[in-house]
Amino acid sequence: MSSSTSNPLPDVEPQASTSESSEYKPQQSTQYSFKPSPENSKTSTKADFTDDEEKKDDSMYVCNICLDIAKDAVVSMCGHLYCWPCLNTWLETRPTRQLCPVCKAAISKEKVIPLYGRNSDKQQDPRSKVPPRPQGQRTEPDPNTGFQGFQSFNGADGGFHLSFGIGAFPFGFFASSFNFNDMRPSARAPQHQQGTPQFEEDQFLSKVFLWVALFFFSWLILAEA
């Protein structure tokens, strides 16, 4: 009996131990996506196991405000667990003093991490009165970690700086060295998506300037000839 139940585990473990932790995560996510189909046959013994485990560790996952098992769980940056409705009510009770109820660290609605358990999508309750739980925040890895100055020339708005550079050299230099101002929308793009009106406006403007510059160039050359 014991050998049959422990068999699946050694199959999984070598994979996890030989591969790096970063490779182990995708494996988990694929398991998650296939979850509905094997649930009825394969995971029945596992479910019993986790139920026992949960009963033991119940006290670990208790909301610090209602003292019940946390529902729509969120965790503060200081690591304290709450139900989202509980924490939301607490923060609304004292708008001027947004402190963690446990450790009194400064907290805010924006800096709260939602916890997505495996079955959390099943227990979606109507969030009619309470504002929705904040989204999980994904930070995109930096695309180029090297010299950032080149981005101005590779970017779509390179022509814009070129057109300024013709008339007065120092001004062009000035503009390109203050490029971080233009980098901001491109760095923000993954979070806010490219659909924001400001982003589109910026792109449109830079294209217009590019065409104006090209026209100006060709006119100069033609006039010279």
Partner: peptide, 9 residues
């Protein structure tokens, strides 16, 4: 009073 926190019992 002011320093009450919801996690207190």
């Amino acid at each position: 009073k002011d320093n009450w926190a919801a996690a207190m019992t």
